[in-house]
Amino acid sequence: MSAAALLFRRELALSWGGGGGPLVAVGFLATLTTLIPLAAGADPTRLAPLAAAVAWVALALASLLSLERLFERDHEDGALDLLALGPLPLEAVCALKALAHWVGTGLPLALAAPVAALALGLAPSLAPLALVAGLLGGLGFSFIGALGAALALGARRGGLLIAAVVLPLFIPPVIFGGGALARAADGQSPLQALALLAAYALFAAAVSPLAAAAAVRNAQS
């Protein structure tokens, strides 16, 4: 088995092992969704217009949760130094870690987000679109998030710092994903918004491993 496949499997196993990290993220998304009707009132006419937006923001926030451990754990126990010495370039290591974060955490969250939106009163016909947007957006969130996690290596208050660094970069995907759902709800075609969302996710996947690798090297030196 190639080094890349091994690393990918290791990352997936680590994200699910030891307390089931993705389940905690899904639980966070469910709790956040529960708070909305409690704060805004249970009236469906008030909740339904917010449903897609709330589920989408909850998805973005929930994907922040597990980022802190993405590099920090390996940095502390020295595994990251070994990975840097290994056959894979550090850029590939960062890309694989982000990809595994997408599959391990982003996928369950993308499945949970439409359910949360339906519970708040989203039209059932929009649920597949919410899933697709969640998947595409999740790819962008994971790769941008990996960059934030790499930058926060060796910093005090790592978790809070990741949020401060990463959330401004989440703005384009949040706009495009929310826009896709809002357009579909208005009866317009969501394709343009989805294409822009996919473009940003792919752009992040192409660029952020380079920056993340530079940040990891800096933290190791």
Binding site: G154, A164, V165
Partner: peptide
């Protein structure tokens, strides 16, 4: 804010 926060929290 993000830039200054990052700068301030690495010793």
């Amino acid at each position: 804010l993000g830039y200054m926060a990052l700068r301030a929290s690495i010793d």
